[in-house]
Structures are given as structure tokens and as C-alpha cells.
Design a protein around this nucleic acid. Structure first.
Length: 927
RNA sequence: GGGCCGGUAGAUCAGUGGUAGAUCGCCCGCUUGGCGUGCGGGAGGCCGCGGGUUCGAAUCCCGCCCGGUCCA
């Protein structure tokens, strides 16, 4: 694509005496007041402003921004507040990369009015494409910068201004800064993007491109240009670049971050550079154009050679400085992106946030300040929050998300490292070198950066590739994957039916409660029916399509789904379809629709609750409202706790109870954005033209095309049924409202009751079965025992002891004895056992006194003749002179058997075990 | 949205078609005044889910789910 001279030759230039010249170095045409050999843009010439700023005075970034804005204000442009850096109003971009993005596609296409015309804005823009160049180019490349945009939208029959005025304004602005017109060059260029194109001028001063003046006037269709109905003046002034020009420092970073440099240097060391040598090097920094095969190292050498600077002397400080610059730049981007409520994740804009965070964190770790990232981000919030209040408002969320992401990164790295160590020692053992392929693979699989992998390998004395080799390999691997948009299969058929038909009249917006209507059939084939008007809501905005019936004179058809295509609503019918021209009576399944409506309004209520409960980083990432239940996907970095869920649910039900009206209105886009902010676009991009706003006053406002209840009270109970993490950084709430909630709850309760019954029954059976089982075993065991006692008395004896011991151990382990108390420093254990057996009792008594302190035990049971007891006294007690025999005698033993030095078993004539116990206590007390 | 890697004992992982393993942790015993240590013993696995190939699948193939990671 090329534009001829006629596109650039304007009246203003000929009036003022500009000449069209061709650059000897780059071959491009440019316009200049004076004779020149080159276009003046680096690298055709070096930067001449470094060390000798050409403006009347130095400007800081805020000063330059204000100078720019107020200049255009004085020229009838209205100042507009900057837009977010995350363009929620469009889905083809992750970040705002230019000021014109704020007005695409709705204004540039002519569908909506701009907030003002002409207008001026200083728009923070983020571009990830240059991320590798940030630092080495000393500020020519930044991931985040402010684009001063002066825009005029020339609607058909309503021209504002075009090329002449644009150039004139640019010149006047620059002259106002004290720049001489003779030194300004307008270089011819072509701008193309997003299917649009137009000629442009790059405005050059002192080697630096400081602005681009684009005249967006064409649409690109199959390689041919077609004039656009709306011709847009799209100018972008580099606010930071003008400020840099005005200060003439070696790097732009010194200008942009001057107010926090002191604080930053207290966190990380910022090297001192010989300012003279650095300045000379900086003049040639435009030659630093890292590309595949020409890494930062070569680029630096080339610039140094041209500048006549001995690089070896400044290199260590320079490299470190570049890293500091990267950090400054990336942390600013992080602050802005997180301020717009982006949750770092592994896809889409969340990934870009993660990338910036991880790159910054890695640099800090190499510097030995792996803990400093939140502090740096906090500094950014502080300085930029003055001009962009959103940063301050979101401070808490920004720091929480950044810290959380750093934590995750550390976990990921330590996981990767342990794996890496194994892999490397395996290589070491088999004496294999670490290849570039392996390094690239490890980065892609586990996110360990090549520098980290290589340094680990070198520490193990493995043969390694250089970082440059690895980077080259990774770049060469990138093959652009073609994007293929799979259309849903119904679209092809629907296009045949709906193609060329007028947009269907949407009756459901007039009265969302209405259920029957009359309409004419405009098209009908293959089970697809188009009417001139309908109450059937087509699937959209996460709300499912309506179902119902179409009746006509000779039949009726069931509508199973409803869709919309280019404003034409398509009814999917089963069975016979009404013929074209027929008048049909439509009947929407109103109960179903009402349930869906309640779910839709409930979704709006919930998103308000979620943002209040979790923080303003929580955005709707998707939603689906059906008749039985609905779901809401929300960006959030952590799994939800029970408390989170309860809080969200409580807040939501409070809104229901407050009986708030649900207001629906159509507003001009810019009015809506001004009044409600960009949280309007929870549901994603909104259709062109006016915006339909659904507002729950004081709670939530969203651009939404759905059908809603008139009052929150109609929603009824909102019940969250399930919470799950569906992907990195996104949680899903499944919920039900109103009648559906009631149904879900009662079903759940019924199910629970059924389960409880089952469990209870199973328990009863288990108990029964268990005791039967035990009884059976007891019997057979007893029989076996009796047999054994008769036939082999010796073995019986030892077996009996062993079994008794085992039982005693279980008893002692489970602490199932009846009483345990301290008498002075003596632990006394008492138990009553229904089954009497000497060996068993002895074992119990013995087991009970296994302590490392004085302990006594008394186990009693009732025999036919009286009471059988075992007394146990451990060695700590026998040292005091109390023996089991002595104790037994004091307790009135009639027959007595001393089992060992700790235990004795005896019988007494006492009736009540408590008598013996009391006596035993008194005995112990007397010690 | 796409590519790549992974899912085996509580944790970290090995196991590439033929009886499921190691280390740590846990439990028990011995060692100790006690804890730790040391020694000995033990428990713990739908080998993510589903399908296919096979005489036979943790292992090969397909699909799904989950986690990680890179890229748009």
C-alpha cells in the first residue's frame, strides 16, 4: 500500500514555504522549511537534544501533559478524562495501545457520537510488543506511555477539521514550547490497523519522533481502499518524549521517574554513570534496534562505536541501569493494569499482567531484592495516583494482587527448580551438554527463564549455550498461528433465511412481562422462522433464548430456541412451520421466561455483591442465565472461602429485601460512560450505537440487552448452590433465584433427608449385624477355648494371658475406663468390667499403671459370690512401701493372688464396688 | 483461544506392556530418665476419569477432567 504525493501535499505547506525532500539515508519523503539531506529522524541522524534541550524550559511529565491539554483546549478541543488501559468496551484488544482505541469502533464507524468533537485526551497506553527493547533504548521504547491524543471526527456533512488545521495546530503547539519550526520535519508515512488505513506525518525534532498525525480515511477491503464515511483525525503526541526533549537527559527514564528516583535508589542500587560518556552514548542510542541475530549486546557496541565511547568502561553500570529502567517501566504498567481490575492468570490480558510481574520479579531476584516488588508498585501508585485517581482507589487490590502473584511465581519457580536439579544432574552423570533446545523447553514448560537455567547449569559445570543463542532459537520457533473463527453451525442456515430481511421489532423490550403477541411471518424454511415482530427473546448476553408456541389458522409449532443474527430474530421450530405471509399468534413460555428474568436480575445483583465482598478487581468473565439455575464467572485470584460465599449471598439478599427498582434506559455511549464508569461493560463489549443501561440504583449499572424484573424484590431468594474454580484467575458461582431457588433447595433437602435415612438404616443394620457377628464369634471362640483348656491346659494358659493382655492394651489405648483422677501426685484409674476373669483383670490393672509417675489402678467386677478386684501399683508407689498385697489386704481381700510385684487379684465380700474404691482412695491419700 | 508439560502412597517423585516402588512424613517396637537421634518393623494406592488396542495396560491410542507453563 502506498499513498501518492497528493495525499501529503497540503495548502498549509505551500503557503508556509515547505519543500518536499527525500532522505538520503532512509529514502523516505519528508516536508521541511529548510534544505536538509536526511529526514532528521534517528537513526538517520543522532539525537541532538541530549545535553542541549531545544525547548524554552524543562518540563516534567505532568507539566508537559498539562501544556498539551491546555493548548488544545485553547483551540476549542474539549478535554476528556483518560480511559482505562483495559478496553472492556471491545474484545479485539487486550490493552489500549493508542488514544484512538477509546473511540473505536463505535465513534469511528459513525454509530455513536464522541463525548466531544474535537476533543483532547492524555491517554495512558500499554504496548507489549516492544517489551524486550525497554531499557536498552533508554526510553524510546516503553511498555506504558501517555499518548496525547487530539481527535476530530468528521461525520458526513459535519466537518470539523482535516489535514491543514491538524498540521497547523501541531506546529503551533511545538512553537509554543519554544521549538523552532525550521527544525521540525514532517515525514510521510502510512498508518494501517484494524482494517483502517490512511496517510500520516511523523513529526520529528532533534532526531526524535515526537508525534504522529494520522488521517484515518480508508477502509481496507480485499487490498483495495474504500473511503470511510467518517474521516478521523488521529494524532498521537508522545507526552514523555516531549518531556524528554525538554530536559535533554541521556534517558527518558530520568525524566519520567525523577520524582521517585531517590526512593527507588533506597530500595535498589542505581549505578552512577559518567554523565559525559553516557550522554554521548545516548545520542546514538537510536541505533540500538535489537532484532533477531542482532541482540542488545551487538546493538550497544554499535551505538558506542558511533559515539566514540569506550563501552567496556561503562558497560557494567549501563547493563544494571537498563535493568533498573525495565523495573521502573514494568512496575508502572503493572500498577495501571491491576488498577483496571485485571487478575493475573495464564490467558488473555491476565497473562500480560503475569508476564510483566514475573519479568520484574526475576530482575529483582537477580538483584537480591526478591521482596521489593510490592514496594516499587506502591511507589508507582503514589506518583501516578495523583493524576490517575483510579490507582489510589484501587491501591489495596493492586498490592494484594501483585503480592499474591509474586508468591505464586516463587512457588512455581521452586517447583521447577527441584525438577531442574534432577534433570541437570542426570545430564552431568551422562556427560551431556545443556542444549538451547532444552533451555527453551524448560522455559516453555515450567516458566524458568533461560538466564536462571543457564546459571544453574554453569554452577554445576555443565556445558551451556549462551542466552543469546537460546533467545534466537525461541524467536525462530514462533510461527504465527492463523486465527480461525469457527462459526456456529446454525449460522450458515440462518444466513440463508435471514439474509436481507429487515431487523425484527423487539417487543420484549416494551414489556418484558408480556407473553402473547401477533406477527407476520417474513421467512420460513428448514425449521427457522422469521417474524416482523416478536416477544421471543433471542439468546444473548448470557441469557438463553425463549421457548414457546406459534399458532396460526392451520396449525401450531413449538419454538425450541431463539437466536439473533444481524438484528434479525430467528425462531427455531419443531414440526410443521407456518408459511410465509401467515399471521401467527405467538405465545412465550412465560413461567420459564420469568425464571430466566429473575436469574438475570439476580446476576446483576450478585456482581454488585461480589465486587463489594471480594474487591473491585472482580469482573464478570461470563454468565449464563437459564430457567433452572444460572452461573456467574468472576475474575478472582483465590478460591472462595465459605465466608466469602456467605457474605456475597447475604449482600445479594439484602438488595432483594430493599425492593430497589430496576431502571432500564437507552443512553448515548459517552453519557453512559461518564455517569456510570467503565464497569458498565461487565458483560463485555456492547453493540454499537446507544447503550442500553440496566441500573439498580446505588448497587450496579451495566450495559445489558437482557430482560429484567422491574424491582429487585421480584427476584426472591438468591441461593448460591456451588462455587468452583473454572480456570486460573476465574471462579464460577452457580446459583438459583426465586422459584428456581426454592425448587433447588427443597430438592437438596429431600435428597439430604433421604441420605440421612439411608445412613441411619445402614448404621442400625451395622450395629445389629455387628453384635450378631460378635456373638457368633464369642460362642465359637469360647468353645475353642474350652476345648483347648481341656486338652492343652498349658497352651491355654499362655493364650489366655496373651488375649487378656491384648484386650487390656486396647482398653488402655482407647482410655475407655470409667474414672481417672489424681490423688495428690498419684494417678488413680478405676474401672468396672462386666465380664470377670482373673487374667484379664490382672492385665487391665497392669496396663493402667504404665506411667512414668506414681499410678494406681483398681479394676472391679461382680462375681456370683461377691466382688472380684485387681489392684495395680507401679514401681513409683512400691518405693513408698505400698505393695499390691498390702493394699489388697487393706481392702478386705478374702482370697488373694499376687500376680507380680505390681499387681494382685483378690475377692472380697463387699457388695458395692464403690465401697472398695472409697477405701482405696483413703489408702492413697494417707500416703 | 492455541501449543507444550504433567496427574502414581499424606508430600516430592521413579517406574515405557508382565507381581506398583524410593525418599521424607505417619504408626509400632527397641534404644533414652524424657525428647531427639539410631536400629528394626508396619500401615498407607480405583496409578485423574471414560473408552479402545492386547492373553495382559500405570505404561500404547482416542476423548474428557484437573494442574502447570508458554504464546496470541
Amino acid at each position: 500500500m502506498e499513498f501518492g504525493e497528493e495525499h501529503y501535499s497540503i495548502g498549509f505547506f505551500s503557503r508556509e514555504g515547505y519543500r518536499r525532500l527525500r532522505c538520503r539515508s532512509c529514502g523516505k519523503y519528508f516536508w521541511s522549511l529548510t534544505e536538509r539531506e536526511t529526514c532528521g529522524e534517528a537513526p538517520c541522524e543522532p539525537y541532538t537534544f541530549i545535553g542541549s534541550p531545544p525547548t524554552r524550559r524543562p518540563y516534567s511529565v505532568p507539566e508537559m501533559r498539562e501544556a498539551f491539554l491546555s493548548f488544545f483546549e485553547s483551540k476549542d478541543h474539549r478535554r476528556v478524562a483518560p480511559y482505562p488501559v483495559v478496553p472492556r468496551w471491545r474484545k479485539d484488544l487486550y490493552l489500549v495501545s493508542a488514544s484512538i482505541v477509546d473511540f473505536q469502533p463505535h465513534v469511528t464507524s459513525g454509530a455513536s457520537e464522541p463525548p466531544a468533537n474535537p476533543l483532547v485526551v492524555s491517554q495512558p497506553c500499554i504496548r507489549m510488543v516492544d517489551i524486550e527493547k525497554v531499557g536498552p533504548t533508554l526510553g524510546r521504547h516503553l511498555t506504558i506511555f501517555e499518548m496525547g491524543g487530539a481527535h476530530a471526527f468528521n461525520f458526513p456533512g459535519r466537518d470539523v477539521y482535516w489535514k491543514d488545521r491538524t498540521v497547523e495546530l501541531c506546529l503551533e503547539f511545538m512553537e509554543g514550547l519554544g521549538l523552532r519550526a525550521e527544525e521540525i520535519v514532517f515525514k510521510e508515512g502510512i498508518w494501517a490497523g484494524g482494517g483502517n488505513a490512511g496517510p500520516c506525518y511523523e513529526v520529528i525534532h532533534s532526531g526524535l519522533e515526537v508525534a504522529t498525525l494520522v488521517f484515518m480515511s480508508y477502509r481496507v477491503l480485499n487490498d483495495t481502499l474504500e473511503e470511510l464515511p467518517v474521516r478521523t483525525v488521529d494524532t498521537g503526541y508522545g507526552v514523555e518524549r516531549y518531556a524528554w526533549l525538554s530536559q535533554g537527559t541521556p534517558s527518558a527514564f530520568q525524566v519520567i521517574y525523577s520524582s521517585i528516583m531517590d526512593k527507588v535508589s533506597s530500595i535498589i542500587e542505581i549505578p552512577e554513570l559518567n554523565s559525559e560518556a553516557f550522554a554521548r552514548y545516548a545520542r546514538y542510542s537510536a541505533w540500538i534496534q535489537p532484532s533477531p541475530g542482532f541482540g542488545p549486546r551487538e546493538a550497544r557496541h554499535q551505538a558506542a562505536k558511533l559515539a566514540g565511547v569506550n563501552l567496556d568502561y561503562i558497560l557494567p553500570a549501563l547493563e544494571r541501569l537498563e535493568q533498573v529502567y525495565k523495573l521502573l517501566d514494568h512496575t508502572k504498567s503493572i500498577a495501571f493494569i491491576l488498577a483496571d481490575g485485571v487478575v493475573p492468570s495464564n490467558s488473555k490480558v491476565g497473562y500480560l499482567a503475569r508476564l510483566l510481574l514475573r519479568k520484574s520479579q526475576r530482575i529483582l531476584e537477580i538483584m537480591g531484592r526478591g521482596d521489593a516488588l510490592p514496594e516499587l508498585v506502591s511507589l508507582q501508585v503514589e506518583i501516578w495516583g495523583r493524576d490517575f485517581p483510579r490507582l489510589r482507589e484501587m491501591r489495596e487490590e493492586i498490592l494484594e494482587l501483585a503480592s499474591h502473584e509474586v508468591r505464586r511465581f516463587k512457588e512455581s519457580v521452586s517447583r521447577g527448580l527441584s525438577q531442574l536439579e534432577r534433570e541437570l544432574s542426570e545430564m552431568k552423570r551422562s556427560n551431556k551438554p545443556l542444549t538451547s533446545e532444552s533451555v527453551a523447553r524448560i522455559y516453555e514448560e515450567r516458566g524458568l527463564t533461560p538466564d536462571l537455567v543457564i546459571s544453574k547449569a554453569r554452577a554445576m559445570e555443565l556445558e551451556t549455550p549462551s542466552i543469546e543463542e537460546v533467545e534466537e532459537l525461541m524467536i525462530s520457533r514462533h510461527i504465527e498461528a492463523s486465527r480461525e473463527r469457527g462459526e456456529e453451525n446454525w449460522v450458515a442456515g440462518a444466513l440463508q433465511v435471514a439474509g436481507g430481511l429487515p431487523k425484527t421489532e423487539k417487543l420484549y423490550y416494551e414489556d418484558p412481562y408480556a407473553s402473547s403477541f401477533e406477527a407476520k411471518v417474513l421467512a420460513s424454511s428448514n425449521g427457522l422462522v422469521v417474524l416482523n415482530r416478536t416477544l421471543f427473546y433471542p439468546e444473548g448476553g448470557g441469557q438463553v433464548g425463549d421457548t414457546g408456541v406459534l399458532r396460526w389458522s392451520r396449525g401450531e409449532a413449538r419454538v425450541t430456541d431463539t437466536q439473533i443474527l444481524d438484528g434479525v430474530i430467528i425462531h427455531f421450530v419443531g414440526g410443521e412451520a407456518p408459511p410465509v405471509g401467515e399471521t401467527v399468534q405467538g405465545q412465550v413460555d412465560i413461567e420459564r421466561r420469568l425464571n430466566i428474568m429473575r436469574h438475570h436480575t439476580a446476576t446483576h445483583i450478585l456482581i454488585g455483591s461480589v465486587r463489594r465482598a471480594l474487591g473491585r478487581h472482580a469482573w464478570q468473565m461470563g454468565a449464563k442465565k437459564e430457567a433452572e439455575a444460572a452461573r456467574l464467572d468472576v475474575s478472582h485470584h483465590k478460591p472462595l472461602t465459605q465466608e466469602d460465599v456467605e457474605r456475597i449471598e447475604r449482600l445479594a439478599n439484602e438488595v432483594v429485601a430493599r425492593r430497589l427498582p430496576v431502571k432500564v434506559m437507552w443512553l448515548p455511549r459517552s453519557t453512559a460512560e461518564e455517569r456510570y464508569g467503565f464497569t458498565l461493560y461487565q458483560g463485555g463489549e456492547a453493540p454499537l450505537g446507544e447503550v442500553r443501561v440496566v441500573e439498580i440504583p446505588g448497587w450496579d449499572a451495566e450495559a445489558c440487552g437482557g430482560t429484567h424484573c422491574a424491582n429487585t424484590a421480584e427476584v426472591g431468594l438468591i441461593k448460591i448452590l456451588k462455587v468452583e474454580r473454572i480456570q486460573d484467575g476465574v471462579v464460577r458461582l452457580v446459583f438459583a433465584a426465586g422459584a428456581a431457588a426454592h425448587k433447588q433447595i427443597s430438592e437438596t433437602i429431600t435428597q439430604l433427608q433421604r441420605r440421612v435415612e439411608l445412613v441411619e438404616r445402614a448404621l442400625r443394620q451395622l450395629k445389629l449385624g455387628y453384635s450378631k457377628l460378635i456373638e457368633g464369634y464369642q460362642e465359637s471362640v469360647l468353645r475353642e477355648f474350652e476345648k483347648l483348656e481341656r486338652e492343652q491346659p498349658d497352651r491355654f494358659k499362655s493364650l489366655e494371658t496373651a488375649v487378656a493382655g491384648m484386650a487390656a492394651k486396647i482398653w488402655s489405648f482407647s482410655k475407655s475406663y470409667q474414672k481417672e483422677e489424681m490423688i495428690g501426685n498419684v494417678r488413680l484409674i478405676f474401672d468396672f468390667r462386666p465380664v470377670v476373669d482373673d487374667a484379664y483383670f490382672a492385665a487391665l490393672a497392669s496396663e493402667a499403671v504404665r506411667h512414668n509417675a506414681p499410678a494406681a489402678s483398681l479394676v472391679v467386677g461382680r462375681s456370683k459370690t461377691g466382688i472380684v478386684a485387681a489392684v495395680g501399683l507401679n514401681r513409683h508407689l512400691s518405693r513408698l512401701g505400698l505393695t499390691p498385697k498390702l493394699a489388697a489386704e487393706r481392702l478386705g481381700a478374702s482370697s488373694l493372688r499376687v500376680v507380680n510385684e505390681e499387681v494382685a487379684v483378690f475377692e472380697t465380700s463387699a457388695r458395692d464396688p464403690r465401697e472398695i474404691y472409697g477405701e482405696f482412695r483413703r489408702l492413697l491419700e494417707s500416703l
